[in-house]
C-alpha cells in the first residue's frame, strides 16, 4: 500500500504558551513494498509523523493518502480499518501489555478485527513464533512475568498478528542486547521479503539502517530533508553530521580508503560488502 504525505503540518498544544510545531510541510510518497528507515535527531518529529500514518493524531493542516484514500476524511469505522492496514508498534511497546496471558494479549488485535476463532489462534501462534519465542512454553505465561526483552517481543507480536500491510516500528530495538536486536530486525526483514509488506523503521542505528533499508527518510527539526536510497543519503556525510546524525562506521572507513585508492567504491555500508570491495581492489595478499 502506498502512503502519500502531502503538506503535512502538526502543531502541538496550539494556542497555548507550550505551542510547538513538530512537523513542517512534509511531502513524501512512500512506495509500496519498500523497507523504509526513518532517521533524525531526538525531537525531530519522527514519532509525530508516524502517528499520522494510521490516523492516531490529526494533522494541523495537510493530509495523508493511503492508496489514494484521504485517511482523515473517512468514517470512524473506515479509520479503524485503516489502523488494521497500517500497524504501528510504539516506542517501548511493552508498556501496553494488559492481558492475563501472552496468547490473550497477542490475540487482542485480531479479536478487534473480528476474525474467526481458529484464524485468531493460528495468527497468534504464527506471530509469537515470528518474534522468536516458543509458543508452547510462553502462551499461558503472564506477560508481566517476562523479561523486558521478551515483553517487547510479545508486544511486537501483538501488532504482527493483525498482519498489517504497512508495518511501522518506532525504535523497536531501543534498550535490547545486540542479539535481541539482530533477531528482531532479522525477523522483520524476513517477513518483509516473504510478504512484500511495506516496513517503516524508526532507528537511531545507522548500521541497522544501512543494512536493512531500501529507502531512508531523514527528518531534521520537523522537516523531511532527504528521501532516497541509502547510497544516495549516506553520500551527504557532512550534512548528516550537522544534523546530529552520522553514517555507518564502514562508510567512514571506505571514505578514508578512497583518498588512497581512488578506484575504490565508497558507497558501501555493510561489513560484508566492504570486505569484498577491499579484497577486489587491494587483492588477497594485502588482506591480513
Amino acid at each position: 500500500m502506498s502512503l502519500k504525505i502531502e503538506h503535512l503540518d502538526h502543531i502541538y498544544a496550539a494556542g497555548s504558551p507550550f505551542e510547538f510545531q513538530a512537523l513542517k510541510d512534509i511531502n513524501v510518497e512512500l512506495e509500496d513494498g519498500c523497507f523504509i528507515a526513518l532517521i533524525g535527531h531526538t525531537g525531530s518529529g519522527k514519532s509525530t509523523l508516524i502517528q499520522h500514518l494510521n490516523g492516531l493524531i490529526e494533522p494541523t493542516s495537510g493530509t495523508v493518502y493511503l492508496d489514494g484514500q484521504d485517511i482523515f476524511d473517512q468514517s470512524k469505522e473506515d479509520l479503524i480499518k485503516t489502523r488494521f492496514s497500517v500497524g504501528l508498534v510504539f516506542q517501548y511497546p511493552e508498556h501496553q501489555l494488559f492481558e492475563e496471558t501472552v496468547a490473550k494479549d497477542v490475540a487482542y488485535g485480531p479479536k478487534n478485527l473480528k476474525l474467526p476463532e481458529d484464524e485468531i489462534h493460528e495468527r497468534v501462534k504464527w506471530a509469537i513464533e515470528m518474534v522468536g519465542l516458543d509458543y508452547g512454553k510462553i502462551k499461558d505465561v503472564s506477560p508481566f512475568e517476562l523479561s523486558g526483552g521478551q515483553m517487547r517481543r510479545v508486544a511486537i507480536a501483538g501488532v504482527l498478528a493483525m498482519r498489517p500491510k504497512v508495518l511501522i516500528l518506532d525504535e523497536p530495538t531501543a534498550g535490547l542486547d545486540p542479539h535481541g536486536r539482530d533477531m528482531i530486525l532479522g525477523q522483520i526483514q524476513k517477513l518483509h521479503k516473504a510478504a512484500h509488506n511495506t516496513v517503516i523503521l524508526v532507528s537511531h542505528s545507522m548500521e541497522d539502517v544501512g543494512r536493512y533499508a531500501d529507502r531512508i527518510l531523514v527528518m531534521y527539526h520537523g522537516k523531511a530533508v532527504y528521501y532516497d536510497t541509502p547510497t544516495q543519503v549516506f553520500r551527504h556525510v557532512d550534512e548528516l553530521e550537522k544534523m546530529g546524525l552520522a553514517v555507518p562506521q564502514v562508510k567512514y572507513l571506505m571514505r578514508a580508503l578512497k583518498k588512497q585508492y581512488p578506484e575504490i567504491n565508497d558507497d558501501l555500508f555493510t561489513v560484508e560488502d566492504a570486505r569484498d570491495e577491499i579484497e577486489r581492489v587491494l587483492g588477497r595478499e594485502h588482506h591480513v
Partner: peptide, 18 residues
C-alpha cells in the same frame, strides 16, 4: 502515559466509542 496507552491500543484496533 494514558494518552500513549490509548493510542497504542487504538493502533491495535481498540474502539472506545461504540
Amino acid at each position: 502515559e494514558t494518552d500513549k496507552i490509548i493510542k497504542a491500543q487504538k493502533a491495535r484496533g481498540a474502539d472506545f466509542e461504540t
